[in-house]
């Protein structure tokens, strides 16, 4: 009984193997792509794969990449705006600097002009003062010279009279003062 069963089993197995071999032969002869027995398997796994990919993309990958790209775009735009801002600020600063420079230059010009005017004024005053002093001194000197000259003339007459009197007395004469004076005056005039 058991043997019989075993034998039947073996026969069955042999049949299965034979069928499988035949199937293999048919398979390898044609295209595995047209082996419809594997279609269900491939389609099932394909759909699973697609669903998983779609889920991963739409839930994780794409929002993340989109956020990163938007973030980068924002950063670049922000940086460009900031750069533009700084550029404007720099331009403003440059204008302020230019203005300060021009102001300072004008101020300096003004101060120089004022100083020059002041110096000129002082100089004028000093010149006038000096002029006045010089003319005063000149006049004084003139007067002194005149005086000295007059004094000298007088002295010459006196010396001459004295000398004459001395000479006359030395010669043994006796000179009358008024005659002497008259003679010396006449001589001096002559």
């Amino acid at each position: 009984m058991a043997n019989e069963h075993e034998a039947a089993n073996m026969a069955h197995d042999a049949g299965a193997v034979a069928a499988e071999a035949a199937g293999h032969a048919a398979e390898s002869a044609g295209m595995p792509q047209l082996d419809f027995s594997t279609f269900g398997n491939q389609i099932f796994w394909l759909l699973v794969t697609l669903v998983v990919i779609y889920w991963v993309l739409s839930r994780i990958a794409l929002p993340r990449i989109a956020a990163v790209l938007a973030d980068r775009q924002g950063t670049i735009a922000g940086d460009l705006a900031a750069a533009e801002d700084y550029k404007l600020k720099a331009k403003d600063a440059e204008a302020a600097y230019e203005k300060a420079l021009a102001d300072a230059r004008a101020q300096a010009q003004k101060i120089v002009g004022e100083a020059r005017a002041e110096i000129q004024k002082e100089l004028d005053v000093a010149t006038a003062k000096a002029d006045a002093e010089i003319s005063a001194r000149a006049a004084e000197s003139e007067a002194r010279i005149t005086e000295i000259r007059a004094g000298a003339l007088e002295a010459v007459e006196a010396v001459a009279r004295d000398t004459a009197a001395e000479i006359v007395s030395t010669l043994g004469g006796k000179a009358d003062a008024s005659a002497l004076a008259e003679a010396v005056g006449a001589r001096l005039k002559g």
Binding site: S37, T38, G40, N41, Q42, I43, F44, W45, L46, V48, T49, V52, I53, V56, L57, I60, A61, R64, I65
Partner: peptide, 26 residues
Amino acid sequence: PVHWYTPTNASLWMVLGVVGIILMLV
């Protein structure tokens, strides 16, 4: 036999594709 649910070489390489995609994008 290849049943619809059997893990085959086809399913292996599809799953490897998914792994590759996750590696690259996630």
